[in-house]
Design a binder for these strands. Structure first.
Lengths: 158, 158
DNA sequence: ATTGAAAGTGAGCTTTC
DNA sequence: GAAAGCTCACTTTCAAT
């Protein structure tokens, strides 16, 4: 990841990002019209944003519940010791567990926050017992059920 | 959101979702070829997945650092009391704060986990003090810096 | 740097097997 | 569910302001 170039974004760029962050399927034509730009100009700006790495990629978001995993949780993971290589190896292992959506490596009381979506409580327990606490470096875990998850206003809120 | 229809997904659907979850920009043609399907069949499948709500939407992912917010954190929020309406109102308020990426409403020691991306430590402090602890229902917060955030294997790992 | 116009490509639709 | 052909619209490229 060589994305050290200073942002250098103007108002138009920010507006483009704001739209695409909510819906990446808008056509270039519609995007241009919405922002009062020529289509060629708009397409050029978007391509530039991609080339500069401001836009990293675009992905679909799936309905976890419809996919059979209606139960979400955050599993806090605390380590016994914090020797570098072992921590990195655990990070990799956690991110590779099926049904894991995100893994936060954090500084503080906990070391990792593992966000999972599972079928039921049994599957949740299996992940904790079979995939997490099995690692010797893991001192303990604490699981919090997720009632609801919302998107925030984000970086582009005016 | 009326997405109660049982999933009813076969192997092909899952493979389509797996690809689009990593890169939603693949053309229908390339997707079809990659999975050994006719283009018409592939297009039909994808449309069906959208109509059924399995695919919720598609979004770009931006480089937060390039956008001037290189510092991420998780702010744990604990409440004094848990009366329904106030909790919901706070949820709305948290999700509406600029620079907030996600808000988890969880069951457990904490009530909310607020994921933010900010410019520096000062901006982080300002969010906590000016936007979170100002609410009377908030009993306390605890902030954890995010060293690194990784995508997990997800729901479609075989 | 933005614009307008022309050319290449993919998506969406219908029919057919 | 798969294949073929058709139309339309979009992206891209280029020359010009």
């Amino acid at each position: 990841m060589v994305t050290l170039a200073k942002a250098q974004l103007d108002e138009v760029d920010l507006e483009i990002l704001a739209v695409l962050t909510r819906d990446a399927e808008v056509t270039n034509k519609a995007l241009a019209r919405g922002l009062g730009l020529a289509e060629s100009t708009c397409a050029h700006r978007v391509r530039s944003l991609r080339e500069r790495g401001i836009i990293r990629d675009t992905r679909i978001r799936v309905d976890e519940a419809a996919l059979g995993s209606p139960l979400q949780a955050i599993i806090k993971v605390r380590l016994a010791n914090h020797t570098g290589p072992k921590v990195t190896a655990l990070f990799d292992a956690l991110a590779g567990i099926p049904r894991v959506l995100q893994v936060f490596h954090v500084a503080g009381v906990d070391d990792f926050l593992v966000h999972v979506a599972v079928q039921d409580a049994t599957a949740l327990r299996d992940i904790v017992l079979e995939h997490i606490t099995v690692h010797p470096v893991v001192r303990g875990t604490e699981t919090q059920l997720v009632f609801e998850l919302r998107d925030g206003a984000g970086l582009l809120a005016r």
